[in-house]
Amino acid sequence: MSFTSQDIDHLSRLAGIRLTAGEKEKFSSQLSSVLEYVKKIQDIDTSGDHVDFHLEKFHDVTEKDQVRPYGDAEKMIEAAPEVRDRLIRVPPVKDAS
């Protein structure tokens, strides 16, 4: 399988990245060859394997709820690109349509 420019366009929408027409074309050929290479993992028959997400061998590491100072709240707020009176400006996330 290889990527067409349309595939890249679709994926870029899912990924939340606007690409130029030039980038779409370039990425479709570059990512097709990368995909061709990484596809070799499919040569290994893993049908009998269970997925090891490494969960079963670890114990619960949940910490006790404790109030403690962490970082610097003022600095964290300052890092936001748009701040007014210690409030971070968030654009409307619900589309008008």
Binding site: S12, R13, G16, A80, P81, V90, P91, P92, D95, A96
Partner: peptide, 19 residues
């Protein structure tokens, strides 16, 4: 573009500004 880093460009929708 909300909590840190470059500012979101003005756009009609958040989705578009994010992209």
């Amino acid at each position: 573009g909300v909590r840190y880093g470059s500012k979101l460009p003005r756009s009609s929708t958040f989705r578009e500004a994010y992209r």
